[in-house]
Simulated scan of single mutants.
Amino acid sequence: MNGDGGFEWVGAASETAYNLGEELDNRTVPAGTNLLVVGPPMAGTRRFGIELLAAGAEDRPIIVTNRESARTIRSDHADCLDGPVGVIDCVTKQGGEPRLDSPSIRYAASPDDLTGVGMELTDLLAGTPDGKSGGDRVLFDSVSTLLMYSCAERTARFLDVVTARIEEQDAIGLFALNSLAHEDAVYERLCRLFDGVVRLDDGGVVDAELPES
């Protein structure tokens, strides 16, 4: 399948199921599930997503970050991310910040470098899972930042390809979205791309529409 910008998805992984941790009552979702995590700015969608990554002790977490650098993500969330973590950093190159020297950290040119993000995610998902026996958990933080750089239609096309790739790899995808930043039509268009939606407020989970495992 060819995605936005011309990169190509290839390969597949073995099936598994994913436990979503205590915040979601240890419910499980099938391999290949993509969830939209929605909340206002103070609800902590990034932190919630990282906690969902950490809920799979045997799984490999991958973070696509277009709001903070890899250095900041690792520093601020070291209590959750205490093992090998793959990071695709869309901030550092554009901002001229110092890079971290690690084969598990990749750098896209900017938040709207969709081709670069797609290529790096393809590579990380296809790579050796660091000796672990589980699957891959991917957090995209955030869809709202992507919409600041790209129109809604281009963003939707890109996410359609990314979610398909995650499904093909039997991974799980978590995509953070600011619930106050977008028109209803954009929000509804995006929701149709995902298998379920988790809604947050500043007190935690409001409701979760999840597929059956």
Rank of each mutant, 00 (worst) to 15 (best):
G3R: 09
D4K: 12
F7L: 13
A13N: 10
A17Q: 14
A17K: 14
A17M: 14
N19I: 06
L20D: 01
L24P: 06
D25L: 07
G32E: 01
N34G: 06
L35I: 13
G39N: 08
M42R: 12
G44W: 11
G44M: 09
R46Y: 14
G49Q: 07
I50E: 08
E51Y: 12
L53K: 01
A55C: 09
D59G: 03
R60P: 01
R60W: 06
I62S: 02
I73N: 03
R74Q: 15
A78K: 13
V85Q: 04
T92N: 01
K93C: 06
K93S: 09
Q94R: 14
Q94W: 12
E97N: 00
L100I: 13
S104D: 15
I105E: 05
Y107H: 04
P111I: 00
P111M: 05
L114E: 08
T115K: 13
G118Q: 06
E120D: 07
L121K: 03
T122E: 06
D123S: 05
L125I: 03
A126W: 04
T128H: 15
D136P: 03
R137L: 05
V138N: 01
V138Y: 01
L139G: 03
V143N: 03
L146G: 06
A152P: 00
A156D: 04
L159G: 07
D160N: 15
R165Q: 11
I172A: 10
G173A: 04
L174N: 05
N178C: 06
H182V: 02
E183N: 10
A185C: 00
E188C: 10
E188A: 14
L190S: 06
F194K: 05
D195L: 10
L200G: 05
G204H: 10
G204I: 08
L210C: 11
S213M: 14
